[in-house]
Each structure stands twice: as C-alpha cells, then as structure tokens.
Design a protein around this nucleic acid. Structure first.
Length: 353
DNA sequence: AACGAACCCAACCGCTTCCGA
DNA sequence: GTCGGAAGCGGTTGGGTTCGT
C-alpha cells in the first residue's frame, strides 16, 4: 500500500532551483513568513514546486545567516564529538550546535570529508602500530572462529576490533581492551554517569567469574536524566557494538541505577551492528580510544579545557533538543528485569511521553 | 586534449513524528 | 483514542565539477 503523494508530481518542477524561483520564495517568506503551511506556499507564490522542496530550499539555502563550506577545525571537533556521542541519526541536533550550519550541510561534510579525514588519520596510526599489534587482529580473527554459530553468515571475522563477542580475553588484547574501557568510561563520567566500582552496593560481572570473558561489566549510574542513559547506551553500543540486552534499572532518591550486564553470545551481538559504527570503532580503537582521537580537551564536556564552543555544547542543550519530554517528564522506575530486546524502548520503562 | 574516476553537494525520497480535528 | 495531513528528518541519488592519467 503506497503513501499518498504530498503534491501533484506531474505538475511539479524538480531539479535545481533557478535564481528567479529563489528570489520569489525568499521575497515571499521574508515578507509574509511561511504561514505555517509549506504545502500551500508554492501555490500562493506561483511556484511549480513541491512544498517540501520549498521548505528544503529555504532551510538549506535561502534562510538568512546560512554558511556554506569552510568548516573550521573547531567545528570539525564539535561534529566528531557529537557524532561519536549521539550517532549519525541526529544531524539536526549536531546542526543545532553549529549556528549557520544546516543538518544537510553537516551530513554532506561528514560523509564526504570528515569521515575520510579521520580514517586517514587512523591509517597512519595503524601503520605505526602495525608492528606491535600485528598479531592482534589475526588472533582475534582466529579466536572468533570459536564463537561462530553454525549456519550463521560468517560476519565475525569482519567485525571491528572493539566487538567484545568475537574477542575473548587474551593476554594480547587485554591491555587494549582495558584502555578502551577507560576511554568510554571517561566519557560516561564526563556526561554525568558513575560506575559500579564507585558504588559500594553494586554488583557487576567479574571478568574472572564471567565465563565468556566479556569485558563490559558496566553498572552505570545517572542522576535524574534518563536520556543520559539512553545516549550513553548508544555510545556503548556504537563504540563497541553492544546492545543493552540485559539491563535493569532502579531508582533510589535522585539517582537512577542502570545495570548493563553483557551476557549475550555472538548471536545477541550481531543485533544493531552498523557498518560505520564498526568502522568508527576500529578508528577509535586505533587511536587510544575517543580521547586519542580528538584529545581529552575536545570531548563533549562542559568542564573541559578545550574550545569555548565545545564547552557550550552541553548535554542539557542537546537533550532538551532531542527529547524534551523525557527530560522534563521523568518518572522513576522500579528495579525490574528487562526481557531481551535489541533496542531500548524508553516508553516501556519511563512511562508514556 | 580527451577520457574516466573521484569528489562534492543540492535536491529528492520516503519514513517517522507531531498535532489538530 | 484515532485518524489524517503536515512537518521534520536522515538516507540516498544524480548531475556538475575537479582531478589524474
């Protein structure tokens, strides 16, 4: 069953905008505003364009104070930091932190330049390290064979270094893993989280008792803001391809306790694996974690010693843009077991929005 | 100079979310 | 509570431009 078209496709012009069309649209909106109805707007002006097309043209090109091209190093850092923190599906949020930039612009910039720039850096670092880490990937690949599920597509050998399910703890990778854990940990702390070993009552998976030797025994504590949890889980899952499969949460006074125990096997881990996240994971891994990539000062952190614009990118701002309902509409949830799900359904735990 | 490859980015597509009736 | 229309958004495409051979 198809979706009804938003306009009469046959009578709508497509393709690049002419200067005359631009002028018409700009003049009308500057004089009258959009009127809250993009669909009706082209007819009012006499443009043979789809309303969505008019909206896009205005927002991405004609709107005042739009800047194109010439991204500064500072902007690069902001984009990278936010990309790592909140992922690729939040271009509008990233754009909101960069005045004069549109989500489309940032998206294009990331896909065409920034990604390559970072991966270029990665290659250099990788080459420098190849001597010392030569056996690591091979070992991982070899050992991942032990975890392959019969009948499953052979995906494991192509997984990023960071993927825990295919990386049982060995003397070779232990050091690298711990280092990355520290990086993620530092970010979560900066975002306002606390870890189980900061909390006397917590219990975590011990690496010595965990038969699978997965190295993510995180219990994360966040004050009040559930979105922080979700975003942090995104960090964890994006950085290390982990889904918060077995999670519990509880509420004590103003502190929410989320326990994220990674007990799944390779089957569980395949869920949610994203190609570039995997790519990025490897990049992060080869750059001493997030901090190695951008430097500690450029992390998304209000207390950092980095640039002022990074400092202004507070999580409160981002969260309020992204999920204002959740930030303001907090409802405590009791300690409960959560069934295995591939994605965290906030409405199930935080009540209706 | 000619050609193909790579790059860039404006615009489109279609899915999701929002909001009013 | 539901439905439908509109807005918002991210992913993708396609055409123009630049670069390399």
């Amino acid at each position: 069953m198809g979706r009804a078209p938003c306009c009469d496709k046959a009578n709508v012009k497509k393709g690049p905008w002419s200067p005359e069309e631009d002028a018409k649209l700009k003049a009308y909106i500057e004089a009258n505003g959009t009127g809250g109805n993009w669909i009706a707007l082209p007819q009012k002006i006499g443009l043979k364009r789809c309303g969505k097309s008019c909206r896009l043209r205005w927002l991405n090109y004609l709107r005042p104070n739009i800047r194109h091209g010439g991204f500064s190093e500072e902007e690069d850092n902001i984009i990278c930091s936010l990309y790592i923190s909140i992922g690729s599906s939040r271009w509008s949020i990233i754009a909101a932190q960069l005045p004069g930039r549109t989500d489309n612009d940032i998206k294009n910039y990331w896909n065409t330049k920034l990604k390559k720039k970072l991966l270029g850096k990665q290659r250099k670092v990788q080459q420098a390290r190849s001597a010392s880490c030569l056996s690591f990937k091979q070992e991982m690949k070899r050992e991942s064979e032990n975890y392959r599920v019969p009948g499953m597509v052979n995906q494991a050998s192509d997984w990023p270094l960071l993927s825990p399910p295919v990386m049982p703890l060995t003397s070779t990778n232990q050091d690298l893993y711990l280092r990355d854990q520290d990086s993620i940990r530092n970010i979560l702390v900066k975002l306002g989280g606390r870890f189980s070993d900061d909390h006397p009552q917590s219990s975590t998976i011990s690496t010595t008792t965990n038969p699978m030797n997965f190295r993510y025994p995180f219990d994360v504590y966040f004050s009040q803001d559930h979105q922080l949890y979700e975003d942090s889980m995104n960090i964890l899952s994006s950085a290390s391809s982990i889904s918060p499969l077995n999670s519990t949460c509880s509420q004590t006074n103003s502190t929410t306790h989320f326990s994220v125990n990674q007990v799944g096997g390779p089957n569980d881990m395949i869920q949610g694996l994203d190609a570039f996240q995997a790519e990025l994971s490897e990049l992060i891994y080869n750059n001493n974690g997030f901090e190695g990539l951008y430097g500690t000062d450029n992390m998304v952190d209000g207390s950092s010693t980095g640039t002022s614009s990074v400092e202004s990118s507070s999580w409160e701002d981002i969260n309020s843009l992204a999920y204002p309902q959740i930030v303001s509409g907090f409802e405590p949830c009791q300690h409960q077991s959560i069934p295995q799900v591939s994605t965290f359904d906030k409405s199930s735990y935080f009540g209706p929005q």
